[in-house]
Design a protein around this nucleic acid. Structure first.
Lengths: 227, 227
DNA sequence: CGGACGTCGGTGACAAAGTCACGCAAGAGG
DNA sequence: CCTCTTGCGTGACTTTGTCACCGACGTCCG
């Protein structure tokens, strides 16, 4: 990690499936063309106000993409993990018809920013990169299908159990308010409160202010899979 | 219209924004590489069972893309209109992780089928075609955002009013059962029945078996826009 | 003509989810 | 300690979805 923020990363092209496979010459060109940016946790990466004209490869960190209704309710559409794929998807696509979707850095984030002409050139020249980009789109589209399915046909207790497990990962506790969880699932705070109260009564979780301990993960998993 | 089904259409490359702008030589190559297929109304264009390995340009007709839940409930995700864009989006993307989405020909359909290698070559070579493809993706993604927004935050009476107007177009009557409409919106038949009964009581529509007359379109529009 | 059957729509009772209007309690910062 | 913000609990009500059932209409066919 050097200090200057433009060439701070040894060779970021190593990080992405789509660039790893490229010839050395192309990779060097990319490294010259790209800039590295760092964003603090909580920063809006893109949104209705803030429409990016550049491409955005997530080198490190995590970005949450969510949508907000007129009524102020929010729902999380998907998350982008580092190396996993790029954010261009929602970012640039929606440039034109800026919808009410936004991307928020959930952690401190390091990203590679590529000017659009360079991106175009790359898509044209490099088959592996093209595949990478299409895969990214594909993944997003599938995520969205999943959201539609859940919201249209799923029960909230099941969805909440799923999400609690996902957010916890290996941890046994989550730091999130009821409102946070409501925003995850696109529902109301009161609904979450009630379901969590029920979970607690059933011994699945243990609540305290702003945090939820997953007491019986396997029972939660059973519930989550009773889809 | 000639008879042989392989060269039946004078010059389909004229039909799409993404191919119209290509050099004559490339267009001729495409015409040689592609096949023309016709599908009857009601045919499944793609689906969990029927995963296409080729690209699909909608020359004429309309395709409805919908998703079905385990419980058998269905929701329409979007429609693809002729010339407007290609269907590859959902079709090929989901090839890998065949989800429970399917495309149905809503009318008789004429399509241009392009082998994937030819498609790849085209994306690589031709900037206008690339833009065409990305625009198509973009459109789909925006459609999906809209669906999520509606389902998560919208009221069904409003959504139904919208959909009735959309389905009617210039017509003043729609041929659709309550179940059809329920599948459009991803809800249950009974719900549609109740809302329509209410609409009728308010003089907005007039029902008969399998058809709905939009009596007061402007009132419906008002309701639809009260989002 | 008159069943027989399949599709369509209506209904009531209930369950699940979302809305509204509160009020209380746990921290944070003086 | 007091105050203020933020998080949470609750009850009453509306909207939406589910279940079970029935009748009305149309069509096919004996």
């Amino acid at each position: 990690m050097s200090a200057d923020g433009t060439t701070g990363i040894a060779d970021w092209t190593e990080r992405f499936k789509g660039t790893r496979a490229l010839p050395r010459a192309v990779r060097d060109r990319l490294i010259r063309a790209a800039r590295i940016v760092r964003l603090e946790k909580g920063t809006q990466v893109f949104g209705p106000d803030n429409v990016p004209d550049r491409l955005f490869f997530l080198y490190d960190g995590r970005i949450r993409v969510s949508q907000t209704s007129e009524g102020g309710r929010e729902i999380v559409l998907y998350r982008v993990e580092a190396g996993d794929s790029c954010v261009l998807t929602t970012a640039c696509m929606l440039a034109e018809e800026a919808y009410n979707a936004e991307g928020i850095a959930e952690t401190d984030v390091t990203a590679v920013v590529l000017p659009k002409p360079e991106f175009d050139r790359l898509v044209a020249e490099a088959e592996p990169f093209r595949k990478f980009v299409f895969d990214a789109y594909s993944r997003r589209l599938i995520d969205m299908l999943r959201v539609v399915d859940d919201v249209a046909f799923g029960r909230i207790d099941v969805r909440l159990a799923e999400r609690l497990l996902a957010l916890a990962g290996d941890m046994k506790e989550i730091a999130a308010t009821h409102q946070d969880l409501a925003s995850e699932l696109g529902t109301a705070r009161e609904v979450i409160s009630r379901v969590l109260a029920d979970f607690q009564k059933r011994g699945l979780v243990q609540q305290s202010r702003g945090r939820i301990a997953l007491v019986d993960k396997s029972a939660l998993r059973a519930l989550a899979e009773s889809a």
